[in-house]
């Protein structure tokens, strides 16, 4: 494992910790998209089915379990927690997730390495992760003054993807025969989706202003 991959994973981990701390400390999930969190849970569960039949390393196993449990925990807070659930604004979080999930499933059934249940579900999770942030970005755009921690959460998530791009470049240069086109193309699209957000995040940070995305 190279430094970019490790830094990417740690950034991903940190983004979730920031989100959980924000929700727990402020007892509010204002500006957090439940739809995106549910899509991530679906992504993690369909991708990490291999927990049941393949072992890579203790590190991988721990991270997989952490991602599944933490997104489940965020969803529990938003849906079930007595005070946090009252701060969830479902009227703003209206993205139609089936418009994301269905095309991803059709694509996964069409473009995959192997037509088996686990391989199609794994491919589906790769495609779905690329677009799962969209409900969150739309919600941020509708929120006039974005909460600093929510902004940081999305920034860290985008940073994790950018670091994965560097990880792939490093692996291409150092590992003969290494290639994974489905992952590369999806990951590049996923990172590109954050470009607009990065621009406004860095602009607001430099000007010392609250983040607000133009609609």
């Amino acid at each position: 494992m190279n430094i970019f991959r490790f830094a990417g994973d740690m950034t991903h981990l940190l983004s979730i910790i920031v989100l959980l701390l924000k929700i727990n400390a402020t007892k509010s999930c204002a500006g957090v998209s439940l739809k995106t969190q549910e899509l991530y849970l679906l992504v993690f569960v369909t991708r990490y089915l291999d927990l049941l039949y393949s072992y890579i390393s203790l590190y991988n196993t721990f991270m997989k379990l952490f991602f599944i449990c933490s997104s489940g925990c965020v969803i529990w807070y938003i849906r079930e927690h007595k005070t946090v659930s009252q701060t969830y604004d479902s009227a703003q979080d209206t993205f139609r997730v089936l418009f994301l999930a269905c095309p991803c499933m059709i694509l996964a059934l069409t473009v995959n390495h192997d037509f088996t249940v686990t391989e199609v579900l794994w491919t589906f999770s790769i495609y779905l992760e690329a677009v799962a942030i969209l409900p969150q970005l739309v919600l941020l755009q509708r929120t006039k003054n974005v909460d600093t921690l929510t902004g940081n959460y999305v920034f860290l998530l985008g940073g994790y993807r950018a670091l994965y791009l560097l990880n792939w470049i490093y692996r291409i240069l150092t590992e003969p025969g290494y290639r994974q086109w489905i992952v590369w193309i999806s990951g590049t699209i996923q990172t590109a989706i954050y470009c607009d957000f990065f621009y406004y995040y860095i602009k607001s940070w430099r000007n010392n202003e609250r983040l607000s995305l133009p609609s």
Binding site: H12, S54, I56, M63, H113, W122, Y164, N167, R179
Partner: peptide
Amino acid sequence: VEVQPPKDEL
């Protein structure tokens, strides 16, 4: 036969 890349990333 196409070799499948190992799923060693997260």
